[in-house]
Design a protein around this nucleic acid. Structure first.
Lengths: 119, 119
DNA sequence: GCTTGATATAACCATTAAGTTATGGAACAA
DNA sequence: TTGTTCCATAACTTAATGGTTATATCAAGC
C-alpha cells in the first residue's frame, strides 16, 4: 500500500478544483473579484435560496478561496486567490511534463528522420 | 430565468474542473502524459479495482481529456489536453477581472496562456 | 425588551459519485 | 474448442452534493 509518489495526497488541490467545478461558485468568485460582498448581495442574482449560497460560500471557504469578515451583522466574503495558484501550478507542472515527453517524441522523430534505414 | 451573462452554462468547464478534482484522475493524466496506456497498466499502481479505473477513464473521456483507441483487445487511453485550455482560459479571464494581489500568478498564467501544448 | 434584518444551522430529499463484487463478451492463444 | 486476457457493465453500498424549508442566532434600531 502507500503508493507514495504516485498518489499525491493534495487535498488542497482536490478542494480547489472541486470548488471551481460549479458554475454558481465560479460566478460568485467572479463577483467577488470586483470587491467583497455580503451573502444576500451574492444570492440576489441567482434563483437560489440564501442557505444554498451560504453553503457554496462554505465550500469556497474550505478550499481557502474566500475569507469571511464581520461588519455589523453582515459576514462579507472576500476573495483569496492564493489557492488558485496551486491549481495553476499543477497545470503548469503538467504542461511541462507533457511538453517534455513531447520533446522526447521530437527527438525520436528527429532520429527517425535522420536515419538512412528508409532508403 | 436564464441569468444570461452571470450564470454561464459551461458544462465543459464544469466537467474539466470536476475531472481534475480527483487525485486518481490527475495521476492517470500524468501517467498518460508520457504516452498512451491500457486500463490494466493504469490500474496497476493503484489499490483499486479495474472497474474503478474504467469508471475514472469514463469521467475523463466525458470531460474530453482522453480518447480511447482500439489495439487488439486493449482499449488504450490517450491524452487530449485541449479541454484544459478552457480551464486555463477561465483562470486567465478571472485574473483579468481581478488583477490586484494576484502577484506571481500572473507569470504562471502568462506561460500557460502562451503555450500551444494544449491543442 | 421587542422587532427586524442578515446569516447560519438543522432536517430533509434527490441525485451523483466512488468504490466494491460478480458477470459478460470480445479477442487471442492452445 | 477451450481457456485466458482485457475490458466493460450491472447491481449494489456508502457517502457526498446541491438544493429545499423551517428555525435559530445575533447584532441593530426603536
Amino acid at each position: 500500500m502507500e503508493q507514495v509518489g504516485y498518489m499525491s495526497g493534495k487535498p488542497g488541490l482536490d478542494a480547489v478544483f472541486s470548488a471551481l467545478s460549479d458554475p454558481t461558485r465560479r460566478a460568485i468568485l467572479t463577483k467577488l473579484a470586483s470587491g467583497e460582498a455580503s451573502v444576500n448581495e451574492l444570492a440576489e442574482p441567482f434563483e437560489m435560496s440564501q442557505p444554498a449560497v451560504s453553503k457554496h460560500l462554505k465550500v469556497l471557504e474550505r478550499a481557502g478561496l474566500i475569507t469571511r469578515g464581520t461588519d455589523r451583522q453582515r459576514r462579507p466574503a472576500r476573495l483569496n486567490a492564493k489557492p488558485m495558484k496551486e491549481a495553476v501550478a499543477w497545470l503548469e507542472e503538467f504542461r511541462k511534463f507533457w511538453s517534455s515527453s513531447f520533446d522526447q517524441l521530437d527527438n525520436l522523430l528527429e532520429e527517425l528522420k535522420n536515419t538512412d534505414q528508409w532508403e
